[in-house]
Design a protein around this nucleic acid. Structure first.
Lengths: 341, 341
DNA sequence: CTGAAAGCGCTAACAC
DNA sequence: GTGTTAGCGCTTTCAG
């Protein structure tokens, strides 16, 4: 790297002390107007910029936030990221971003790398594997070392920190309710994310809706498919029960896959089968028919999370108690569900 | 932030000098086995980790790369990012990532923030507005200050640095060729990205293909639509020429929008109209019919870009001449184009 | 074997 | 007004 000009260099050219230069550039009243202008002009001409690393060392603050996201191709996480980035850059914070790729090992490594780094705080949504293993040592350690963490979406009760979560239970409740109210007699639930905290909450919401409608819960209608299973086969088995006329999918790709399959099976949608799902990605708008979705307001979640983190960082002197903010979902009705009359 | 343990702390507890501790932790042969073990054990127990900021200051290297991406919701850029992240983390580099959101101003601000930062290098794809303005001062300055830049996809000849580009011309050439060979007599081109370098190259490729097939170029078939125009209306006008039976869209969303429109107009696809487009995103696989795409191998581009950058950073002593690597595209045939017989 | 000292670039309290 | 000094946390010569 070409050497950048430092205070020392300037001090030497004018044969003054480094402190004088520093003060001159800060427009300190201690320095004579003459000295100030000559130093300031010289600095400007030579594009002097303070070395931020030196400042970091001095201030023990880096204005940098670590962001750990499971998968950036997932619309929801991408939107959250946009929200985070927006507010962070507005406040002069840098983002060091990492993708855990749903792997526990990568997440641990990442956190390790990050915390010995120069971070003022971390925003994270847990990797799937981490939620499965329920091993949070890496994060507990980080908190113990005094680095604030804000978790979002996929969180854990075991960690004492700020959190931003989606009201998954209510989201599933409303969607299920909508399916029933719009005429579905038998709603099945398809989960490929039963490992995730949010997956479990969504199942709760589904149950709550059925209960409230006085429909007895048939556990066989709650289908948990894991990654290594064949999705199509699993779905075909459940759909051999021809009386199923509603499908609540817990995330986007399951819904899209299901749609393709049932179209091949010559179902009419939404007449024979209604479909609704979580995460409002572009895909759902563009498939035929378009799929009704529960929006989790990703951008807003991201914004909320950074705000909480920055707040904690900048007020570490008198910390508030940890908070969990709940973001409401909204149901976006499309062609895959029938309208209420 | 809770104070982390430092060399100084350890030195004090054992009443030795800081230098001794530093050497002991590095397992230096200068230090007695006894001293080493006791210090190492103590350090481990107390989770000693060197303060990387101090090291940055010392080494004038931060193992951090800045990444500026126009839009993370765009599949192509997301994939590039994944590629970058993968290789970067493998090599122990952090990523400071920013979204320019296609805005010139944000890009300039970002670069400014980044370069006074602590970066060893920058990877960037230009914002649309930047390509439109053709103002690259911010990047030229950065290069002048000795910070290496690798540009990808949306690049500029005015900047002397390493680049990774897609063979856009050949990609468009092949796709157009495919449309013709599979029976299209009149292929129109839809560009919503005529501001971009890549957009222009793709048009070139289209022309080249027509030329090679001895089809005279009808400029009215090259449709440039800008963001503020109504896409549907523009498309309807061009499709009033009923003899058009092929459509080359320069990016994903235009293709999807076009598909929806022509389906409404009761075209049969691919029989009445074949469609191909750039950027192989998930959407294209899932719409009905699925759309043939030109894959740009985003992940590979990202990987190539970081590798070039890391190479340059770590061998700054003897720099190579700047290089431009060209990544080949591949055509992925789907239902929206006819098969060759 | 261990320590003192200098230095990375900067700031701030305190002298002069 | 300007300079000196110490210090942020660490490494690395060079003395002892």
């Amino acid at each position: 790297m070409k050497k950048r000009i430092t205070l020392k260099d300037i001090a030497q050219t004018f044969d003054v002390s480094i402190a004088t230069v520093s003060k001159a550039l800060k427009d300190s009243h201690e320095i004579s107007a003459k000295t100030k202008t000559k130093i300031q002009e010289y600095a400007k001409q030579h594009h002097y910029k303070p070395n931020v690393t030196a400042l970091h060392l001095l201030n023990k603050k880096t204005k940098t936030i670590g962001v750990v996201i499971p998968n950036i191709l997932n619309t929801f996480f991408a939107k959250v990221f946009i929200g985070i980035e927006h507010i962070a850059s507005q406040n002069g914070y840098h983002l060091v971003s990492c993708i855990s790729n749903e792997s526990f090992e990568k997440e641990v490594k990442t956190i390790d790398l990050l915390k010995h780094g120069h971070l003022d705080g971390i925003i994270i949504s847990l990797a799937e594997e981490t939620q499965l293993k329920q091993n949070f040592t890496h994060l507990k350690n980080t908190l113990n070392e005094g680095i604030p963490i804000v978790m979002f979406d996929r969180v854990s009760d075991e960690l004492e920190c700020d959190k931003v979560i989606v009201n998954d239970l209510e989201g599933a409740f409303h969607a299920t309710n909508h399916l029933i109210k719009s005429g579905c007699k038998k709603v099945a639930l398809i989960s490929v994310i039963d490992n995730l905290s949010v997956g479990k909450l969504r199942v709760e919401g589904y149950r709550k809706a059925l209960n409230q409608c006085n429909i007895s819960i048939d556990e066989r209608l709650i289908v948990r498919i894991n990654k290594h299973e064949d999705f199509d086969t699993a779905l075909k088995i459940i759909l051999s029960d021809k009386s199923i006329d509603g499908l609540l999918c817990l995330e986007e790709s399951a819904a899209v896959n299901a749609l393709h399959l049932v179209k091949k099976m010559n179902y009419n949608i939404p007449e024979d089968l209604s479909i609704a799902c979580f995460t409002n990605g572009k895909l759902l708008q563009h498939v035929t028919p378009s799929i009704s979705a529960i929006s989790q307001h990703g951008k807003h979640i991201g914004q909320t999370a950074v705000k909480m983190l920055i707040d904690r960082i900048e007020n570490e002197a008198n910390p508030k108690p940890f908070e969990t903010k709940v973001v409401k979902t909204s149901l976006i009705e499309r062609e895959s569900t029938r309208r209420l009359h």
